[in-house]
């Protein structure tokens, strides 16, 4: 494992991703998803919305670094709010 050059923050990050994928799988098994249409322009499943929220979280952080600079705490807060809104109403 040492060749992967792990650091604690990246280990926590990937553990969080893995945990959320497992959780999504369990939720899917218990309550299978139904495609629905929210504020996004296309019908999405729960997994679609999760993927979109992860991808947009990455771009929110990149844009924050590019346009605002400084710490990324507010970018993370924004990404979390956006992710929750997307999962609920997307």
């Amino acid at each position: 494992m040492s060749w992967m050059a792990w650091t604690l923050p990246t280990a926590l990050f990937f553990s969080a991703i893995a945990a959320s994928l497992v959780t999504m799988t369990l939720i899917e098994l218990r309550w299978p998803t139904v495609k629905r249409r929210g504020f996004l322009p296309m019908a999405t499943t729960r997994g679609d919305r999760f993927f979109i929220s992860l991808l947009s979280a990455a771009f929110i952080h990149l844009l924050w670094m590019l346009l605002v600079g400084g710490g990324l705490l507010w970018a993370t807060v924004l990404a979390v709010f956006w992710g929750v809104a997307l999962m609920r109403w997307g």
Binding site: W3, M4, A5, W6, T7, P9, T10, F13, F14
Partner: peptide, 13 residues
């Protein structure tokens, strides 16, 4: 996936 994770690990060091 594993190589990509390694790249992410590299990118913060």
């Amino acid at each position: 996936v594993i190589p990509l994770m390694t790249v992410v690990n590299y990118s913060v060091q």
